[in-house]
Design a protein around this nucleic acid. Structure first.
Length: 519
RNA sequence: GAGGCGCUAGCUCAAUGGUAGAGCAUUGGCCUUUUAAGCCAGUGGCUGUGGGUUCAAGUCCCACGCGCCUCACCA
């Protein structure tokens, strides 16, 4: 095979033939004076412009004002009849049928057309009409090929069904798989909706470092990626959260800040986890976690309406009603109840180990039972969190988003203690469809308390907890300068996008999800 | 990290352990109102990779690779 064919050794004969033929057509186009990879052609219209102009107008009405339209896009289907053909052309706005006829486009235009393959990018100009089958159509007076596609698209009817290939070759997936493009359009609309929502409330969008020194890589419980700066000879970690820097900015006087950005966690991959994902964190001074609950309800309802058109969305067959207020479920209360204890007994640890063992004995799932029994050796707060996760989380309502409230102190190293009960913190998590979507709390701004919490984290790390936070001395120093009473929240953008686009896997809402290299 | 399932033509899929097939695409021919266009005739394969069992392996066994699902970890 000649040296113009890409990676010839890897090609089967069929594919080689297709590519070779298309490259020959590209040469033939050059012979006709058409650059098969030219540029400088700007269409004056979009497919949607014609649909908007004519709507359902009958052919006679279109004929009275057929216009002079100019569009460009990718050919998705080609039905040819010798001296005429119908093309399905798609641009960023939608699809439009283009009718190429020899007597309209002329000898040369038709010579160009004969070198067309499905997948090529073309430009067409001419009046609008409606064909006998009723489809709005651009009847080409001028036709040319702008870009020769040298590889074929997948089969027109079934498209690409191999999910691995869809993720690895997203450019093909976007062209041929119905709905994929819409998912990412919706995701973009969702993100811009969040920006508008917060901007309208006086928030400032900021950007904080993604390269963290070892002591900065906290703000969440997760294992970071490690990297290295050559010139500084400095080991660095990729951020696992934006939290600590954003709160430094609250100290600095930006009373309302948010950051939408990529974070990285060096952990497993599954339907709900990608190693890099996008979070939004926002912090509001002079607010409490109660204020943020209301804000979250308004935000989620608004996004549901904006992206799906209604307050009741459907996720994998399950209706979820985003009409506020969302139900509140007490982590402490429900966990204690499931254990047959009072809240005070659970928090003080009285009879807790026995209750955990009893509950574990009643479980058929051995892994879950083990997890529960192990919790007996932890602090009461940690045990309550485990008991809730094992015994209560599966029973959360499925037809509403749910706020889980009343978190124990021990699992919340950055949260402010509750005034009424310092064993608890003013924190909530938002759950929907079995996923944690958001996590928020009134922020701890007492530097001495924060110092103690960090010390506890360091102790846990020494004891083998790989996800415990490092001691961020500079963050404590910032608090010593005085952080106003503040509430903050983080939302998983990807998971919210899954929900609002009814996508079962996080890979369906990430354009290029991480996959192992082939071979 | 563990278990289950999958991997055959460019794409979508077939094939009791016995000569690897079809549709679409592609190539050639016919066709100026089609909607997965149609008709005729062709081309196209190291069956994910490497071992093994067998007279014979796409098929059975082992290992590996990649993916998906479930679980663990996690948001």
């Amino acid at each position: 095979m000649d040296d113009k064919t890409p990676a010839s050794d890897d090609l089967g004969a069929t594919e080689r033939e297709i590519i070779t033929t298309r490259l020959e057509k590209a040469e033939a186009l050059r012979a006709l004076g058409v650059n098969p990879f030219g540029n400088g052609v700007t269409p004056r219209h979009l497919a949607a412009d014609l649909h908007a102009r004519y709507g359902d107008a009958p052919v006679e009405e279109i004929g009275r004002a057929p216009g002079a339209w100019s569009v460009a896009g990718r050919v998705l289907a080609l039905r040819s009849f010798g001296k005429a053909a119908f093309l399905k052309v798609r641009d960023r706005s939608g699809e439009l049928q283009v009718w190429v006829k020899k007597d309209k486009v002329g000898e040369k235009g038709f010579e160009i057309f004969k070198l067309l393959d499905v997948g090529d990018l073309v430009a067409a100009e001419g009046p609008a009409t409606r064909t006998r089958t009723g489809e709005l159509t651009l009847e080409a007076a001028h036709f040319t090929i702008l870009t020769k596609a040298t590889r074929p698209l997948p089969e027109k009817w079934h498209g690409l069904t191999d999910v691995e290939q869809r993720y690895r070759q997203r450019y093909v997936d976007l062209v041929v798989t119905p709905g994929v493009r819409e998912v990412f359009v919706k995701r973009a609309r969702m993100v811009s909706g969040i920006r508008r929502f917060l901007d309208a409330r006086g928030y400032l969008e900021v950007e904080t470092p993604t390269l963290h020194k070892a002591e900065e890589a906290g703000g969440a419980t997760a294992r970071p990626f490690e990297t290295h700066h050559n010139a500084l000879g400095l080991d660095l970690k990729l951020r696992i959260a934006t939290e600590l820097h954003l709160k430094r900015l609250i100290v600095g006087g930006f009373d309302r800040v948010y950051e939408i950005g990529r974070i990285w966690r060096n952990e497993g991959i599954d339907r709900r986890h990608n190693p890099e994902f996008t979070s939004i964190e926002f912090y509001q001074a002079y607010a409490t976690h109660d204020d943020l609950m209301q804000l979250t309800e308004e935000l989620c309802r608004g996004l549901a309406v904006e992206v799906t058109g209604g307050q009741v969305i459907t996720f994998q067959g399950q209706d979820i009603d985003f009409t506020p207020p969302f139900p509140r479920v007490s982590m402490l209360g429900e966990a204690a109840r499931a254990l047959g204890l009072t809240a005070d007994q659970a928090l003080s640890g009285r009879g807790l180990a026995e209750a955990l063992a009893r509950a574990a004995g009643g479980l058929s799932d051995k892994a879950e039972a083990w997890k529960l029994a192990q919790a007996g050796g932890k602090t009461p707060g940690e045990a309550v969190a485990v008991a809730f996760e094992v015994l209560c989380e599966p029973k959360l309502p499925v037809d509403r988003p749910v706020f889980v409230v009343d978190f124990p102190l021990e699992t919340s190293p950055l949260s402010r203690r509750r005034d009424a009960d310092p064993r608890l913190v003013d924190r909530f998590e938002l759950f929907a469809a079995g996923m944690e979507l958001a996590n928020a709390f009134s922020e701890l701004n007492d530097p001495a308390d924060q110092r103690a919490r960090f010390e506890a984290q360091v102790k846990a790390k020494v004891a083998g907890d790989e996800e415990a936070m490092p001691f961020d001395e500079d963050y404590v120093r910032a608090l010593e300068h005085g952080m106003p009473p503040t509430a903050g929240e983080g939302i998983g953008i990807d998971r919210l996008a899954m929900l609002l686009t009814d996508s079962p896997s996080i890979r369906d809402v990430i354009l290029f999800p991480l996959l192992k290299p082939r071979e």
